[in-house]
Amino acid sequence: MDKTVADLARAVAPITDGASIMIGGFGSSGIPFGLIDALCAQGTTGLTVISNNAGAGETGIATLLKAGRVAKVICSYPRTPGSIWFERRYEAGEVALEVVPQGTLAERIRAAGAGLGGFLTPTAYGTRLAEGKETRVIDGRGYVLEAPLHADFALVRAARGDRYGNLSYHATARNFNPVMAMGAAHTIAEVRHLASEPLDPETVITPGIFVQSVVEYGVRP
């Protein structure tokens, strides 16, 4: 078994127009910058991007927004300091936005990866973000039924990986990466260091079964 791919361009080649893509990262931490740049260079468009934020400055998801490749963003916190490209596209009506509470976003992705039909969460009960959704009261407490969130692809960033697709992370760069690896049909991992020997099983955070391809990108963000 060898899931390694020679370069970033080959890793993103399976992604086609109109695909839904989970992109790991929180703020500037744990973002697969190399894969995003390769996807942008490939020219793929009409994308639905699922991520916690919607990019800042001129890097990461902002690169895709600037190039006009994103049709829809599903995220918890699109507005961060420097999120100029998202705000510009949003104001012009060029990108659709679905705001999802952060914990619900993570759990919807997990439900997709874990084969669940959804879950009941107290989050957002009675608020605008629960409008139109099924609700239930259990032991006197209100819950909202949330659906699994699937995606065609996930782009994740890890500190180390091996040819089996096993991944380990560094500090707060872990964030959404493990759950997105689980939630997408095809996960592409950008790793800072591709280990020549398999990772120590005790250090594996994302088991390789959730990863379809691994590409080394040694640049430290």
């Binding site: 918890s76 949003y90 509470p101 952060q102 107290p122």
Partner: peptide, 21 residues
């Protein structure tokens, strides 16, 4: 998490999860 200004994109982050738990 949101104002009444529709031009201003809302951003909820983890606030709704925190307040219920």
């Amino acid at each position: 998490w949101a104002t009444l200004d529709e031009k201003y994109p809302p951003a909820v982050g983890g606030a709704m999860d925190l307040v219920v738990g």
